[in-house]
Amino acid sequence: MNWKRALLAPAIAVPVIALFGWGLTRDPGYIESPLPGRPAPGFALEVFAPGTAPLARPAGDSIHLDSLRGRIVVVNFWASWCLGCRDEHEDLTRTALAYADRPVSFVGVLYMDQQPAALKWIGEMGGQSYPSVDDPRSRMAIDYGLYGVPETFILDAQGVVAHKQTGPISAAVLTRVVDSLLAVPTGAK
């Protein structure tokens, strides 16, 4: 055995092993969105599910992002075929009601779904307190760099994306992010 040359072995192996070891600590499915910190893409879409009082908007109304300037906006992409959306639904609908008298708006965005199926789903889930709009050609979804559903974007009062959640969101996260944004004094107020 030539032990001097054998020392080459760790020199080659250790960096590779280190790379793999580091890789194991990462989630390969998670891709960081470039959106947080940037102005949220605008949208103007029609309401198909009105929501319930006091948050209701009549079906057929158009929601413009611009018209929500000065408010904190929670945009939640969902679909009736999406299993993860069932888990977060109650948290979303309750949190929306809890902030009903604050400058916070919740908007559901239907992703790759058909309205009758989506309305039926809302019924089965016991209602949705805030209005949902339809995004029939997925232009808004692509503008927001959607990877799938559910995904939730929280926009600050200036319309800048403050938080992006991939997968189901919880009431705790919603409350934490929205409260921190409410605590910031804004020029609009």
């Binding site: 040359r5 072995a9 192996a13 092993i17 194991l24 499915g29």
Partner: peptide, 29 residues
């Protein structure tokens, strides 16, 4: 996708690579 099994594999791959490289480099003469 799985839990801890990745670390077992990492340990194994480390052993295999080091052992193999030491054997081959050591015998290269």
């Amino acid at each position: 996708t799985t839990g801890t099994i990745g670390y077992y594999f990492l340990a194994f791959i480390a052993v295999v690579m080091l052992f193999t490289l030491v054997m081959v480099a050591g015998n290269s003469d």
